[in-house]
Nucleic acid binder design. Structure first.
Lengths: 361, 361
DNA sequence: GCGGATATTGCATGCGTATGCATTACTGTC
DNA sequence: GACAGTAATGCATACGCATGCAATATCCGC
């Protein structure tokens, strides 16, 4: 070794670096790095020396530097829609927990109510995240291609984009719509209404199509239909119209819980109706609030834990080089509560969580 | 210049770098960097060449590399409590918007219901965020010191830690408690109840102390008291006890909206009470849901926009070298709705947002 | 105790940008 | 047109870690 080449001896302002730990431990910076890199080759003796020195100096590997070196940031960009719909905070928490579990951190972007996500996407791209999860949003094919090109995996959660070969995780929206139709028919209802979510969304299309189709298979038409755009206020407005009409629907399927809660609010507070007797209301999501005594909402439950698990799995696979962009559909189930008149048969499960399964035949 | 030293000509797999843009534009990498660094010295002609080349190559500065170089990540770590309380998603959105507005990104950490934030903090420290915002959490003096040492600004939001010289932003919890007491007294109530939040929290202490103090100034004792720990279920349980007693309170102050909504749920759904007539319920926060027809909750509004603005300001100042750790208290106001009997005087404001101000004297 | 296989170690360099410093190109003035 | 003063530019290096490669150290079987 060239003498006098002790370049390792540094001392700067600011934070502790691997060099300083190396000095104290009497090893090279490489050894320090290897100690903190899973799977790297270090002897037990070296590791101990390093750990001890690191603890003494209160050293923490600088993840920024690591990212630059490894070209992996271990950050996942997450774009969430406005959190007005309380199902999304729940989804966010589940996602956060799942990402943490798989050793990733979450860079969160919230989208404003009336603006597109495009500018956000530009930000995300700069941030060098390893992957991107978009909740309840869709994506232009232009952007999808760009991400493909730079190797950034995208996963859509609770929404999908048809034919664009973008990964997505949704629950079985079609099954949900269909089961709810069967459930309401089995409950003896006659006048069916649908409160639509955003008509441009895949979730709304799937739910509505299946709902209407099963109704018509049983000889029923939609008695009323309104568009709530997944918004509380607009859904409440729809409710006012439907309930103020000379003849009311007796069974209402709202495309998500948030709108169903709006509907119940109006029905009870403004029309003094007994929800579950005078009129049945069914939602979709099974957000926490649906269990609140004043709502007690029958709703098609989306299994959040399974959904976010799939998200993580897709990310893992894509980062491992998978070429396919799977569209995962996770099964859900109809949780029966008292916002709806019950069919005679088909209810099962513990009293805390009764579900309805269409009787065979 | 040493001939053949054209080190700038590189070409690698992966993303576009400043070098490649420099080549195409016929300038140095420095010029590219300066073009994308606000306030740097570049001529208009150079800038144009660079911008053009950058656009052509679809170049984006690598923020990871920039962070390593500047030692600023422009990321703020945010730790939020469980989002069951719907006021927190709102706060999160407001904070996200404010951080975005000030050119920062948000690294989000969610804390689990029954576990301490300590392990999360360790993660945050690794991530090299520029600052840390902790929502509704408190912090050990040990950790506060450590952050002080490494120069990481911390801001507590909606909570404070006494005497630890940690910055915090809260709304005027004491005023809130006091105003609510005056309001309920002015409304002619006689039997006052308090549903406490987490008893270890500064918010609960401040609200309760002021509430009780004003009551006693007017010769009233607390008729009933229960602890809801800011949880829906526990607050509902408290409600069942209070409402099931032989004599009920006629005015209930719940330490936050979330618990107030639980109380109203139980009062209406299980005891069939007319909230606002049979019993008055007042909350604290003014979460969105408080406006829902079934709740229509009178509540002390915390001004989210101002609060998050203060958070950003503190972060700016601390990063600019400020030594003091301010404890900001932002004024709030009592928003009057129909969950409570109204006093004769003191109500003002547009019909969409009526507020109550204690009449002078 | 020997030869070879294997595990550990350190050196040197790269990751992509920002920036101090020295150099060069302008700009305006008389 | 010469000069001072300023703006613009490029060079070289640092930021803190990971890692390929070559050099050692350790281990194993005999």
């Amino acid at each position: 070794m060239a003498p006098g080449k002790k370049k390792q001896i540094r001392r700067k302002r600011g934070l502790i670096t691997a060099y300083e730990v190396a000095n104290l431990a009497g090893v090279s910076q490489s050894a320090v790095s290897r100690t903190f890199t899973f799977g790297a080759s270090v002897s037990e003796r070296t590791r101990e020396k390093v750990i001890k020195a690191a603890k003494k100096l209160n050293y923490r590997p600088n993840l920024i530097a690591r990212s630059l070196s490894t070209r992996r940031s271990d950050m996942v960009g997450v774009i969430v829609p406005p959190l007005e719909n309380h199902f999304y905070p729940e989804m966010l928490e589940a996602l956060s927990a799942e990402l943490a579990r798989t050793g990733r951190r979450m860079l969160l972007f919230t989208s404003q109510r009336n603006s597109s996500v495009e500018p956000i996407l530009e930000d995300v791209l700069h941030a060098r995240v390893d992957a991107l999860v978009m909740v309840a949003a869709s994506v232009s094919s232009h952007f999808a291609e760009e991400c493909q090109k730079i190797g950034l995996p995208i996963v859509l959660l609770n929404r999908k984009t048809d034919g664009k070969s973008v990964s997505s995780v949704t629950s079985s929206n079609k099954d949900g719509g269909a089961v709810i139709a069967r459930f309401l028919i089995a409950g003896g209802h006659k006048r069916f209404a649908y409160v639509a979510g955003l008509e441009s969304s895949s979730t709304n299309r799937d739910r509505e199509e299946a709902f209407v189709e099963v109704l018509s298979q049983h000889g029923h038409d939609l008695f009323a239909r309104g568009v709530g755009d997944y918004s509380f206020d607009r859904a409440a407005e729809v409710a006012r119209q439907m309930l103020g009409a000379t003849q009311r629907p007796d069974a209402v399927f709202c495309a998500n819980d948030h709108m169903a809660l709006a509907f119940i609010n109006v029905a009870k507070a403004e029309f003094n109706l007994a929800v579950g007797k005078d009129i049945s209301v069914v939602g979709f999501d099974d957000a926490e609030m649906s269990r609140w005594p004043l709502f007690d909402l029958t709703t098609f439950a989306q299994p959040l834990p399974k959904m976010v698990e799939q998200v993580a799995r897709i990310i893992d696979n894509q980062l491992a080089g998978a070429k396919v962009a799977p569209e995962i559909v996770v099964p859900g189930e109809l949780v029966v509560r008292r916002s709806s008149r019950l069919p005679k048969a088909g209810i099962s499960g513990p009293s805390t969580r009764r579900i309805w399964i269409p009787p065979a035949g």
